[in-house]
Each structure stands twice: as structure tokens, then as C-alpha cells.
Design a protein around this nucleic acid. Structure first.
Lengths: 208, 208
DNA sequence: CATGACATACCCATTATTGGGTATTTTATT
DNA sequence: AATAAAATACCCAATAATGGGTATGTCATG
């Protein structure tokens, strides 16, 4: 019997998956959580074999939750369940230790296949996930992003609508430094001007 | 027998609802669509009584689709099914003619209640929808937003990361005009500076 | 038809941001 | 320890945006 837990903030979807799993007799849904915090408690109480993990969740996001859980219970298998197929999202979940990645656009039956595949030691990624996104061979961080740490940090703040001076204040650095990072990013990414950088930041942000 | 159609880009959720409706014998799911265009075709072929309508969908968003459908088939009843409980989203759907509004965070059983209530001529709004959001008494536009038409248009573009000069080009107006509208919005809304205006635009945007 | 709200467009001085540099210090990686 | 990469911070001239005006034509409503 495969013990499964679901972490997903949309209760309607949880209920749908519940209806699906109810009729499978090798799979038992041992609990559900609507946010990351609930999930951590659920896991330590019920020790599921498999966790279906949404990325965007209140309180603790799916990536952080995955890291936490796997550091305590390394045998747990996490399957990401997300609406985003962006490279960053896939990569970060895989780096965090996820063994599979499902998309909400795909048919629900895929959940069954994924649970069984992952439980038997394999991985399972939705067909529309480009294989090159899954670089990190389950655990070790491999691919370095084009952007540096500070640059990514600033990009995130840009995506939140912060101005250069606000960012400088938040990071306790000079305005000129933030400007420098902006300019470097614009060059690195082949963009032209703040408009494109902002749109890039907004796209990349698969808001947790 | 209540004929129901679903428009929702997350197939997994559609499948879940399907599992739920399968066992209700007064309700029959006559078709599903993953985007607004599919939905329009589906409606003209199958003439559902009730449509469960996601707001955020590819090609044609739920608000536009609702308006289109109701102008052709005024007896159709639309129930919004969204992850957003923001005032604007509710208001626009109600103005477009929706008879109910469900949230994806709520239990799936609510879908059954909503379908039956709306089919019998009532309205159905999720408990967490503040009643004051549902001003427009099903059809007539009541509440005037603080912002004018051009201002809302420009705010949307700002939320997409467009710069003032890009917006001027898109709207075929002078840069100074767009600047004027920006300044007026900043004043009207009691904001200070472009950063706050951008964040306001990003918040308001429950991205279709 | 007058009034008010809106959209359009400009003026001005000030500030923010760009795009091009250079330079110094920290932090990895060899 | 040597090198490379990243982060810090500044210079400059040019452009974009702000915050404060004024002005004109349109459109709707009373």
C-alpha cells in the first residue's frame, strides 16, 4: 500500500484527486494540507511514502518544504504538482530533491502513473517538461544560472515592482551598485532597457 | 437534467470535477474546454444550461467569454470558478453577467450546491466573497471605479511592464499624455512614485 | 447650453535611470 | 598563492520619468 499525502492550496483540486485515489486499492491518501506548515506537521505524524507537492502555497512554498522534509525524512519521495513548466521552477524542485514533476494542465490520471513510477524507484516527468530542464541528477546542483546571486536577488525585487533606490535601501548597498547590476543583467540577457528587464522579471516570477 | 459545461485550463481540475459530477444523476457534464475559444464552439454546439467558467484562460479570458456567450444565449447561466477573490475580478464577472462565483480554495462539493442553486434561478457566491463586491445587481453596471477608462487601460499596460514611451506608442498618443495619466493616477490613488504605481498595477492584475 | 469630467498635449525644474566606462574589495576555484 | 568571478561603488553624458503647472477640444448630463 502506497501512503500518499497532498500539499495543495486549492481544496477543490485536492478533493478531485481524493475522488480519483479512492478507487485505487494500492494507493491510500493518508492526509492533505493546504499550506506548507500543515504539510510539515502531517509528514512527521503520518510519514507518507509519496508527497504530491504544489509549489505555490501559503506560509511555506513547495521548494522550501521539499528541502525541509527530505533533510528529515530522506526516503520520502516528492512529486511536484504545479501549473508552471518554466525552467526555473522545474530546476529548483529537482535540485530540492523532487523525483517527479506533474503539470496541472495534464489529465488527472497522470497522477496515478507518477505515484506508481516514483514509488517503484523511478522518476516521472510530464511530457511537456523539456528534459534539459532536469539537469541536476536528483540532488546535486549542476547548472549555474546565467545570473549571479545578487543579480537574481535584484531581479526578484524588480519583479515585485521595486525601484532602484528602494532596492538599494532594502539591500543596504549604494544606488550605483544596484544600477550596475541592472545594467549587467540587461547586457547579459540581451535585453534593451528597463521595460524589458521588468517584463523578464515578471515572467520569471512564478510567484510562490 | 442540468446540462453543465466546464471551461478551465487545468485539465487535472476538470477531471476532478468530472469524477464528482459523474455520480450525480440530476447533473450531466456535456463537455469541457481548456480555453475560451473551445468554449465558444462547445456552447454553440451543445447549449449547456450552466457553465463553470475559469477567469484565467488561454486565448479568450473568462470575462470576455461570459459577455460573448450571454449576448448570444442569454438564458445560459455562468458560474465563475476562480482562484482570485479580489474585488475587481468578482465585480467584472458579475458585471459580465455571472450568477455565481466559486473559489478554487473551497471544497469541491460547493460546485454541486452552486450548480443546483443557480439552475433554480438563485445566485451563489462563496462565503469568502465579500457581499459588497457583488454590487452590480446581475447585469447593470453600477459601481464606477475611481480610475477613468484611459487610466485603467494605461494601468494594465504598466502592470505588463511597459514603459511610458512604449505605452504612448501602443496607444498612439503623446508621451506627455501618458505621463499626465500616470501622474493623475498617482495622485488619485494616494501613491507616491512609479514604484508604488507599478505595485498597485501588479496587485490589481489578476492575470488573465 | 452650460458644467464638469475626460483625454489630449505641452511647459518647467528636478530626479531616476540608462549605457558606457573604471576601480577596489570579497569570494570562490583552482 | 594565483586567478577568476562577483559584488561593491563611482564617473560621465544622455534619456526617461516625476511633480507641478496650463490649455484645448470632446462628450455626457443635467
Amino acid at each position: 500500500m502506497i501512503k500518499v499525502a497532498i500539499a495543495e492550496d486549492h481544496q477543490s483540486l485536492v478533493d478531485g484527486i481524493n475522488l480519483l485515489l479512492k478507487y485505487e486499492d494500492d494507493i491510500s491518501l493518508i492526509g492533505t494540507a493546504n499550506d506548507g506548515e500543515e504539510l510539515l506537521q502531517l509528514v512527521s505524524k503520518k510519514r507518507p511514502h509519496i508527497i504530491l507537492m504544489d509549489i505555490k502555497m501559503p506560509k511555506i512554498d513547495g521548494i522550501t518544504a521539499t528541502k525541509n522534509i527530505l533533510s528529515q525524512y530522506p526516503n520520502t519521495k516528492v512529486i511536484a504538482f504545479s501549473m508552471f513548466d518554466q525552467e526555473e521552477a522545474v530546476q529548483q524542485m529537482v535540485t530540492a530533491g523532487a523525483k517527479g514533476y506533474l503539470l496541472k494542465n495534464s489529465p488527472l490520471e497522470e497522477v496515478l502513473t507518477a505515484i506508481r513510477e516514483v514509488h517503484s524507484g523511478n522518476t516521472f516527468f510530464d511530457k511537456s517538461i523539456k528534459p534539459e530542464y532536469v539537469t541536476s541528477s536528483s540532488g546535486v546542483s549542476t547548472k549555474k544560472s546565467i545570473l549571479s546571486k545578487s543579480e537574481r536577488e535584484i531581479l526578484t525585487l524588480i519583479g515585485q515592482g521595486r525601484t532602484t533606490s528602494e532596492i538599494a535601501a532594502i539591500r543596504f548597498t549604494a544606488v550605483s551598485t544596484v544600477e550596475k547590476h541592472r545594467k549587467n543583467m540587461i547586457r547579459k540577457l540581451g535585453l534593451s532597457g528597463k521595460g524589458e528587464l521588468l517584463r523578464y522579471a515578471l515572467e520569471k516570477k512564478y510567484d510562490f
